[in-house]
Amino acid sequence: MLAPSNKNALRVPCVLMRGGTSRGPFFLETDLPGDPNERDRFLIAAMGSPHVLQVNGIGGGNPMTSKVAIVSRSSQPGADVDYLFAQVATDRAFVDVSPNCGNMLSAVGPFAIEAGLVPAEIGETTVRIFNRNTSTTVEAVVQTPAGVVEYEGETAIDGVPGTAAPIKLTFLDALGSKTGAFLPTGHVHEFIENTPVTLVDYAMPMVLLRASDLGLSGDEPPDELEANLPLLERLEAIRLEAGLRMGLGDVSGSVVPKLAILSAARHGGTITSRYFMNAHRCHKGHAVTGALCIAAACRLPGSVAHDLATPSLTSLVNLEHPSGRTEIDLSFDASGQVLRASLVRTARRIFEGNVIVPASAVAAPLEGMQQGGTHAQDHHTPTALLRNSSGINDDRRTL
């Protein structure tokens, strides 16, 4: 529930955290409006959208730094906390809760422990996280050697300077995260716009393409790909048709499904990827969920990924991307189907305090605001937007 800073502004507790190669504010759900539309208007104002630099908010002017995590105690059997990811557009008044973000997810465990939602153990603390965007569960192992979260360590991940404590993420049920099937169309290989594609859903619905089929080498820098307007138009046409075939409907207003342009590994890894976060932005590194999806597809004979992957496949998949590599560890059931996928990330708590937004930005719809994505758990009883200034929200005490 929101607290007034003065009659014209709202003050809401948040913690800015880096999760993997992403960054954004973390909120307790109880501190935000219960109505999804009011919540989205608050997030847009807090991040400073719509503005490409987000100069009037705390966003970073880039999809990797315009992300939000909303955390609460879980009512799901076997889960400790619920995590709702929100991607806030930089250039329009739009919040998308269709996808999950595995990088931001890596900071959910530390945040939940320090917010008092999960008691810390001595040594390591396992936090079971229910992702509301995809209705899947992820197990995070957080370093808590003295019964408190330890962020310092010797683990390095490509795309982030320095080292930090490792956080192991294991995706327990990522198969068919949004579509309900590993192969939503039932085909390993098909054509869209006369281009071979594999449409697959593991942790993230994706369209996998071969770089050579697009006239590319596959190791182009992201900026070069983003400047290739004919390529972007072709990719978006393919993505829109893929969304229809995968049962996702009209995806013109969503960032799902994602796209990856694949090629052979060049530096001793398994495969090379260029991952598109939306219709015109190529990731400077790689998304976690996208990496898991490509890793699973590498084990799928006949898929675009399998045809490009190194012949000597093992349970470890090393995905090469513009910032380096991401290593994914796959486990399989008796039939050879991917059962679980794990990888190691790091996180950092950057600052804690309150974000202040104009009350008017939350109370009334923004002109031109687009409706965000939906997910299975996005139904809340609306709460009062402003509370009595003498009221105390007890859930804030541990922030």
Results as ranks from 00 to 15, higher is better:
residue 298 C to R: 07
residue 386 L to T: 15
residue 192 I to R: 00
residue 146 A to V: 11
residue 58 I to P: 07
residue 169 L to H: 03
residue 173 D to W: 01
residue 139 E to L: 04
residue 9 A to I: 05
residue 11 R to H: 04
residue 128 R to V: 13
residue 137 T to I: 08
residue 185 T to D: 10
residue 175 L to N: 15
residue 91 D to Y: 11
residue 14 C to T: 07
residue 322 P to D: 03
residue 271 I to G: 03
residue 350 I to N: 09
residue 50 P to T: 05
residue 394 D to G: 11
residue 291 A to P: 06
residue 225 L to Y: 01
residue 85 F to I: 02
residue 230 P to Y: 06
residue 152 E to S: 14
residue 42 F to I: 08
residue 262 L to R: 06
residue 319 L to Y: 00
residue 239 R to I: 07
residue 88 V to T: 05
residue 301 P to Q: 10
residue 327 E to C: 10
residue 300 L to R: 08
residue 345 R to L: 02
residue 87 Q to I: 01
residue 352 E to N: 08
residue 153 G to S: 11
residue 342 S to I: 03
residue 130 F to R: 13
residue 142 V to S: 02
residue 270 T to K: 01
residue 130 F to Y: 14
residue 27 F to V: 09
residue 308 L to I: 05
residue 275 Y to C: 00
residue 32 L to K: 09
residue 398 T to A: 15
residue 4 P to W: 11
residue 25 P to L: 01
residue 27 F to H: 03
residue 186 G to V: 00
residue 381 T to P: 10
residue 247 G to H: 01
residue 141 V to E: 09
residue 285 G to L: 04
residue 258 K to T: 02
residue 307 D to N: 14
residue 99 P to M: 02
residue 187 H to T: 05
residue 392 I to T: 15
residue 27 F to M: 14
residue 348 R to C: 07
residue 237 A to L: 03
residue 49 S to R: 09
residue 135 S to W: 01
residue 315 S to I: 05
residue 12 V to F: 09
residue 100 N to D: 12
residue 81 V to P: 00
residue 312 S to K: 11
residue 266 R to G: 15
residue 5 S to Q: 15
residue 172 L to K: 06
residue 269 G to H: 00
residue 226 E to K: 08
residue 28 L to M: 13
residue 293 C to E: 02
residue 258 K to M: 04
residue 205 P to W: 01
residue 36 P to Q: 06
residue 210 R to M: 09
residue 58 I to S: 07
residue 220 E to W: 14
residue 157 I to D: 06
residue 349 R to C: 11
residue 63 P to T: 11
residue 375 H to M: 07
residue 228 N to T: 04
residue 152 E to D: 15
residue 100 N to P: 12
residue 208 L to I: 02
residue 374 T to C: 12
residue 274 R to Y: 04
residue 173 D to T: 10
residue 304 V to H: 05
residue 278 N to A: 05
residue 379 H to K: 12
residue 106 S to Y: 00
residue 359 A to R: 14
residue 37 N to R: 14
residue 251 V to I: 06
residue 267 H to D: 15
residue 201 D to Q: 09
residue 82 D to S: 11
residue 45 A to P: 05
residue 225 L to C: 04
residue 53 L to A: 12
residue 215 G to I: 01
residue 65 T to P: 12
residue 266 R to M: 08
residue 320 E to Y: 05
residue 318 N to T: 14
residue 28 L to A: 13
residue 195 T to K: 06
residue 66 S to M: 05
residue 11 R to Q: 14
residue 206 M to V: 04
residue 163 T to M: 07
residue 298 C to T: 13
residue 382 P to H: 13
residue 238 I to Q: 02
residue 29 E to Y: 15
residue 17 M to W: 02
residue 92 R to N: 04
residue 214 L to Q: 04
residue 111 F to Q: 10
residue 248 L to M: 08
residue 32 L to H: 08
residue 280 H to E: 10
